[in-house]
Write a protein that binds this DNA or RNA. Sequence first.
DNA 1: GCATTAACCACAG
DNA 2: CTGTGGTTAATGC
Length: 219
Amino acid sequence: MCILKSEAAKSLNTGELKILSQNCVEVDFKKDEVIFKQNVLSSNVIYLQSGMVKLIIAGPQRKQILKIKKAPCYIGLPTTMGDKINHYSAVAVQNTRACFIDISTFKELLRLNPDFSYEIIIELCKSELDQFHRCVNLLQKQVFGRLANNLIFFADELYNSDEFDLPLNRNELADLVCSSRESISRMFTELADEKIIKIDGKRIKILNKEKLAKIRDKG
DNA sequence: GCATTAACCACAG
DNA sequence: CTGTGGTTAATGC
């Protein structure tokens, strides 16, 4: 049962787990497949079992990548609990296995089991703090700082390695840091010239993390 | 004024 | 899909 792996689900008893497993469906997604779509009615909370996903919202001007999320985690909690329709879309960035949990089942478990609810609240709070920081970064830093910030996030949080394949193309990176495709290109070549990173297509290697961190902090 | 930052356009691999 | 050059607008000494 996939959900067993979730931190929150550890606090469920056998009966509750049974309720969960009977109202939960596992689905595999290939890279670029849409897991859920903005503006459509949503009735599931989704637990990511493996893989990686980008959350995208269509803004007033252009689209915006909200966040890259890596399994194991829940996605769509705010968008499913907060309203009837999805406020953003989720698209697989790599092959991903997800578990769809019926919203009424999920609510029932929240009601039945305080430990489960507690874990969910913790996750949501962490995520909100995260968003606050992201918001300030986006508003107060220049593009270089925002890009460096995300490169370090990829290395430290997503891949646990200083060498990795970018989960996004240049255009999407621009959508992530509120910039333009051209600026991202230029910055990559500049960072490479200064031997701070090495680039080969989507392959990135961070050569000088101290300098990169300095760029991130200075903005 | 002059420099810097970064977006938009166009064109080329 | 990417990289580069030219242009341009906004902002800050």
